[in-house]
Design a protein around this nucleic acid. Sequence first.
DNA 1: CTGTTAGCGCATTCAG
DNA 2: CTGAATGCGCTAACAG
Lengths: 347, 347
Amino acid sequence: MRRITIKDIAREAGVSPQTVSRAINNKGEIRPQTRERILRIAERLGYRPNSVARSLATQRTQNVGLVVPDVSNPFFAEVARGIADTAHQANYNVFLCNTDENVERERSAVHSLEAQRVDGIILCSSRLSEGELIKLADRYGPLVLVNRQIDHPRTGCVLVDDAQGTEDAVRYLLELGHHSIGLLAGPEVSHSGRERKRGYLEAMRAHRLTPRAAWQMHCPPQASGGQAAAGRLLRRAPELTSLLAYNDLVAVGALRACAELGLDVPGDLAIVGCDDIPLAALVSPALTTIHIPKYDLGQQAMGLLLSMMRDEDVPPGPIVLLPQLVIRDSATEPTGGPQPLAKRSLP
Amino acid sequence: MRRITIKDIAREAGVSPQTVSRAINNKGEIRPQTRERILRIAERLGYRPNSVARSLATQRTQNVGLVVPDVSNPFFAEVARGIADTAHQANYNVFLCNTDENVERERSAVHSLEAQRVDGIILCSSRLSEGELIKLADRYGPLVLVNRQIDHPRTGCVLVDDAQGTEDAVRYLLELGHHSIGLLAGPEVSHSGRERKRGYLEAMRAHRLTPRAAWQMHCPPQASGGQAAAGRLLRRAPELTSLLAYNDLVAVGALRACAELGLDVPGDLAIVGCDDIPLAALVSPALTTIHIPKYDLGQQAMGLLLSMMRDEDVPPGPIVLLPQLVIRDSATEPTGGPQPLAKRSLP
DNA sequence: CTGTTAGCGCATTCAG
DNA sequence: CTGAATGCGCTAACAG
């Protein structure tokens, strides 16, 4: 089944292919009348322009590549939405690549996108080494990094001030009257994990509190990880009246751990999450959490990429987005009574 | 910045471009020795094959299009994962298009994909009319529909037996001892909404129970919708001891409504969800729910599309996947005491 | 305003 | 085993 080409239309209309091209792209001088006629014929014949041929001729594809660890992760799903929406508004298509946090897959995704000659690439939470990223930026066109930062003239970065987020959360807990704040830190390798921990430490120190090692524990960023870690942490440090979790899943895990231990949230223990994924509002108690502007992150990243692809001047330095504490039900003032776990016999 | 082409490599290697092409595609006769040499040069020059040019020459793009209402919806996110994984294993790239359940956007997405000359298209929960789908299938290559069915030689369908799922759930509740089972049906326009309702009605009738209209209520497929509807339904029909929800979000809404009304789940009211999105396992009580094999759905859809693109023979008729009831904590035997709401004065 | 010529980078003939 | 010619469908540059 051969598809209709501009030649077919040209023949039908008795003009040259070039004229058809002009009519379709509404470009160059052309008599409105012929243009109309050609368009009608194109319509009648069910013509669909061939972007592949056009791309080859123009050396631009109007496609961009999006590389994420996992679209089924609600965090990246929302970032992806922001990117896709912004891209489509600007008439760009997007290639979706998942990497599962696997460097090898990320590398192959990037190669594939280069082969596709996408006009720009957005890498979310890239696991590639700084050296590799720079090499990529050197040889390829516009590149935008989400949640990662390198210094390169053809690379844009969009970040969230994760440390600021946890600082705000810690301050909030302190103002509520909590003095002993535990941290369920995420993976040590993760960028946001390190930043969020840093924010916690800084906020503590800023308030002349020495962060105790016994109050901190790393865990995998899922509910199961949070549940296990929270259980251990609360036994080890029963004096804790509040917990800051690496993300909402970990916070939910902590919620479950509390249920197991017979602790009431927020009565006995205040819990604050991070990310504000849809889940956060739906568990009970609904999570007080640090909202990360995920959709915005996507919008800004794609917006930046668009500017770069259009060769517009973009201000140097990363675009930094601010998190915002969302107050719901999982953190209130400490009851002030005896230490929650101290008043019970632990299993 | 001009990119390296096979010509550059040919010049460097002192051979013709065709030889380079053969070396790279490992196709046609070529002396292993020259092949090796060429490949090394390509590597050194940082050559990336130009898929655009290749596509134009071969008339195949190795790209497919994926159209979903919303990737940030956990249901479609997982379907998308299944599709993307399977596609990448087979060396296909995927274009991602969101429609927001907007027919106009879906139409434009399809046009865009046609222009990209993707080798195949997967439409999830398409809102296009049957007529339009058939026209699309007529003029375009392989098409696979997820959650939708049409009869067309070049179109494949992958479905979940939604009715079977709710039938199983109703039977389970009946076996637990529930006689009054309410239905929080989803949107009337949705295909799965209608099917799930049908399954409910059939299961009731199969057990010689007349489904009462007062026990059924339609609602938007979100937690808020479920909460509002459950509240009204439970007041209207206080004799209900169990509730089947259109999906997990609606079920969570029902959970909240129960909390408002002072009803214990599962003690006073059993609730069964549908879909088994990650949330389902994380709320408390954890939802007993109908697991829809979302990732499978994606895998099968892409698998089918691959077969069709390879012109393999595919068995006619839709691929039908079976849901499976996942038993967790939100549904147990009825307590058997006085009707739950009857024993309290309603606000 | 419209047509002609050329080429984008590659693969597919067919010769050698 | 390798090279030369041709075309995929379209646009850019120039002529008319």
